[in-house]
Simulated scan of single mutants.
Amino acid sequence: MPKLLKAIAAASAITLAGLTQAHAAWPERAVQWVVPYPAGGGSDVIARVVASTIEKTLGQTVIVENKPGAGTIIGASFIQNAKPDGYVFGTADSGTLAFNPWLYSKLQYDPVKFTYIGGLARFPLMLAVNEASPFKTLEEFIAAARKDPGKLTASSAGSGSPHHLALEMFKQRAGVDIAHVPYKGAAPAIQDLLGGQVSASFVDSAAGLANIKAGKLRVLAVATPERLALLPNVPTMAEAGVNNFNAYAWQGLVGPAGIPGDVVEKLNADLQAALKSPEVDGKIKGMGVEPMPMSAADFKAYADQQREEWGSVIKAAGIKLD
């Protein structure tokens, strides 16, 4: 019996050594980074900026492939169904991991069953009006909304988008009724805000930055815990009287369940190093976006917490997209 146990132990050691050697050689070929949005958008740009840096440390090409559609469901499903060998991973955002499980009765993927790799970036959200708006402060805006419930309107990048759900959270936290006007994307939502077709909009920092800098949009408050360096004179929601309200459009990197731990550690280390590098940090912040480097465990915990928080908002608002 002892001889048998020794033989099993020796065989196990050889197998583990072989696996370790195989993982240590990762990647031996190009890897694929799936982005669940069209080329040219903020998520795509961030992926390509980071990919061009981490491929230097990985020693292999990182191919960014766009698989847009169905509120990130197409891209997320592709990632989750891929072989868990570390050669396919991709961007998953607040919609993928926190909103969709509540917005849809059935999903083609399970947010719990990804391998969480690390945080990428977050887009601060803020309530804005156009330059001709009579509202100079958030207090004035809330007072008008309470005086005539349902009269004020707010555009968003689409039903179920971070901008829409930020509006729903605002309505719940501030105790106001504002009519939601969904658009197909952030650009047309902002365009009609600029044109005065809607009263206000929650905009993300990347999509709204140019018009904010040009003075065409006035930000009444930012939905962040602290004031933004970009807008040091603009109060936070808490400072303006709306408590317990923080909202970002955030994203991170995930892969299919079962990616070997050492591969995740390597990819996370290279990802965090890239996000903290002056070049990548500068490019992302130049878009009005905040880098969000996180360990794999921290990113999973953050996504889990966000899923519960936004689930409460979505259920209270009674939103379903199917």
Rank of each mutant, 00 (worst) to 15 (best):
A206I: 03
T153P: 05
G185E: 10
D204P: 00
L209Q: 14
P124I: 00
S201A: 15
L138T: 00
V181H: 13
Y104K: 09
S161C: 12
A143W: 12
S156R: 06
W102M: 01
A132D: 14
K106A: 12
L194A: 09
A132P: 06
Y116K: 04
D177Q: 12
I190D: 06
E131S: 14
T91W: 12
S159L: 14
N130T: 02
P134K: 15
A132R: 15
N211Q: 11
G196E: 01
G195W: 00
Y183F: 05
D110N: 15
E168Y: 06
G95H: 03
P162I: 03
A144Y: 09
F141I: 10
G119E: 11
A166T: 15
A143L: 11
K113Y: 01
Y87L: 03
A121C: 09
A166E: 10
H163C: 13
P162C: 04
I212M: 08
S155T: 03
P101V: 01
K151F: 03
Q172C: 00
K147S: 15
A189V: 06
A157D: 09
P111G: 07
R122P: 01
S201W: 03
Q197D: 09
A128M: 03
L138G: 06
G208R: 05
D148W: 00
D192L: 00
S205P: 07
A206Q: 14
T137N: 08
R173Y: 02
N130M: 01
F170C: 05
A187D: 14
D204R: 02
S133Y: 05
F89N: 12
F202S: 10
T153M: 01
D110M: 07
P101T: 04
V176I: 12
K106E: 14
M126Q: 14
A121Y: 15
N211Y: 08
P101K: 04
I178S: 11
P188H: 09
G175S: 13
V88A: 10
M126F: 06
A210V: 02
N100I: 00
P149T: 00
S105V: 06
K113L: 06
G119Y: 13
V181S: 07
A128E: 05
L125S: 05
E131Y: 08
Y87T: 08
I212A: 05
A179Q: 14
L120H: 13
N100V: 01
A166P: 10
P101A: 04
L167F: 06
I117R: 11
N130C: 02
Q108S: 10
L138Y: 12
P182L: 09
M169L: 15
S161F: 13
I142P: 14
L138A: 09
N100M: 04
S201M: 03
